[in-house]
Computed example of a mutant assay.
Amino acid sequence: MSSSRPIRGADRKALWVVSELGLPTIVKICVSCPSTRHRPTGKIRVNAHHKLLDVWLLICCDSCGRTSKIPVRRVVSPDAFACPCLWTPRPATTPPF
Rank of each mutant, 00 (worst) to 15 (best):
I70M: 07
M1Y: 10
P40F: 06
W56N: 09
L15H: 14
T93Q: 14
C83N: 13
S63G: 01
P91S: 12
F81V: 04
I44S: 10
C83A: 12
R73C: 10
M1A: 13
I26L: 12
P71K: 04
R8W: 05
V72N: 02
V75H: 13
T41H: 09
H38E: 04
L15W: 15
P89D: 09
S3M: 02
H38G: 00
G65K: 06
L86D: 01
V18K: 02
S35G: 11
G65H: 03
V17S: 06
R39D: 05
L23I: 09
A10M: 11
C33M: 05
V46S: 04
A10R: 15
S63C: 03
P96W: 15
T93E: 10
A14Q: 06
K13E: 03
A48N: 09
M1G: 13
V46L: 04
N47R: 12
C85R: 15
F97C: 14
K28R: 15
N47D: 12
P34F: 02
W16D: 00
S68M: 08
L86P: 01
L58Q: 10
I26G: 05
H38D: 04
W87N: 12
P71L: 07
R12I: 07
D79C: 05
P78S: 00
P6A: 05
G65N: 03
D62P: 02
S3N: 06
S19D: 08
L53F: 00
R39C: 08
A10P: 06
A14S: 06
L15A: 11
H49Q: 15
V18Y: 08
T36L: 00
K28M: 15
C83D: 14
R66Y: 12
V17K: 09
P96N: 12
R74G: 03
N47H: 10
L23W: 08
C64F: 06
V75Q: 09
I7Q: 03
G42P: 01
E20S: 04
L58R: 11
P34S: 05
I59Q: 09
